[in-house]
């Protein structure tokens, strides 16, 4: 994994700017989000693998949905970019 320095960086306790790493080799930087093509209400959700906490159990989204009845999917960026 290659990294380059973040654009803004963080401000350290010493007052100096501390750059944060940003992925540059994942081919996603600058990729345009296409909200029209994003799966929307009524579409079948694209399937993917999910990990359970406190163990390495794997299951697929559709399997989980079938079992649970309702699944909430929340996405957010890396923990390095936000607080709690």
């Amino acid at each position: 994994m290659m990294f380059q320095l973040g654009r803004d960086g963080a401000r350290g306790s010493s007052g100096r700017s501390v750059p944060l790493p940003v992925d540059v080799d994942d081919q996603t930087a600058g990729e345009a989000p296409d909200l029209e093509r994003a799966p929307k209400v009524g579409d079948r959700a694209p399937d993917f693998l999910i990990y359970a906490p406190l163990g390495d159990q794997l299951l697929r989204l559709h399997e989980l949905a079938s079992r649970a009845g309702r699944v909430v999917l929340v996405s957010q960026d890396s923990y390095r970019y936000h607080g709690t």
């Binding site: 079948r44 989204l61 949905a65 649970a68 009845g69 309702r70 699944v71 999917l73």
Partner: peptide, 10 residues
Amino acid sequence: LRIVDRDGVI
């Protein structure tokens, strides 16, 4: 945020 139902539909 998305909610998916039992059939895997959003």
